[in-house]
């Protein structure tokens, strides 16, 4: 079975079928996120507030880790659309989660250039180390392992994204050490994007 956060293919779910998200706890933005949303929505014409749905959902996910039914209703209120409009968007884009995920989400690129450089072996090694299969979260809720499609950094294959950060040239034989380092040092253990040299040096 291929992994797709919204649609476990092969188990009877079809792309056009809908599974309503859990309502979850009540949701409202923190004051900081509310201020961020209010600034972002001004980038679009007032009659097209709907354009701010994606940024609004990114803020929800940054705040709560995943997107619940209550959060969708909240976003609908902020935008001035129906919760169904929001759910339509959430259920389409693969980066939005409707269930809790681990502290670290490991997105291993599985597409051609990375696969040619050992991404399949890397996933295997991570599965072995974490004791889970791709698509699952470990029992402690620390790691979620996902296979994703081309991340746009194929010259540094295999590439792994960890939450919003980059880890490049990830060799299968280093997979176990990477997991340990993440446990110890958090995302400071990652290589980062080779293009962001200065910022990694603390500028």
């Amino acid at each position: 079975m291929s992994f797709h956060p919204k649609m476990p293919y092969g188990t009877g779910w079809h792309r056009s079928e809908r599974k309503l998200a859990e309502l979850g706890p009540e949701f409202a933005y923190t004051p900081e996120n509310q201020a961020r949303f209010d600034a972002i929505v001004k980038r679009y014409p007032p009659e097209h507030r709907r354009s701010a749905i994606l940024p609004a959902l990114h803020l929800v996910q940054a705040q709560q880790g995943y997107i619940t039914g209550h959060a969708m209703t909240f976003v609908a209120g902020q935008i001035g659309c129906t919760p169904a409009d929001v759910e339509d968007v959430v259920s389409y884009y693969t980066m939005f989660f409707t269930q809790p995920v681990g502290t670290y989400v490991l997105y291993v690129c599985r597409t051609l250039s990375c696969a040619l450089c050992g991404a399949e072996r890397l996933t295997e090694a991570l599965e072995e180390k974490l004791g889970i299969r791709a698509g699952q979260t470990d029992a402690t809720g620390t790691f979620t392992l996902l296979e994703v499609e081309c991340l746009g950094a194929c010259d540094r294959a295999p590439v792994v994204m960890v939450n919003d950060e980059w880890h490049e040239c990830a060799r299968p034989e280093d997979a176990a050490a990477l997991v340990d380092a993440l446990r110890e040092r958090g995302t400071a253990a990652l290589t980062g994007c080779h293009l962001c040299v200065e910022r990694r040096n603390g500028q």
Partner: peptide, 16 residues
């Protein structure tokens, strides 16, 4: 959007 597999050029331009 730079999502075509094997493509990573806009990435460099935007970052650097």
């Amino acid at each position: 959007d730079e999502s075509e597999p094997g493509t990573f050029k806009d990435h460099v331009l935007m970052e650097r």
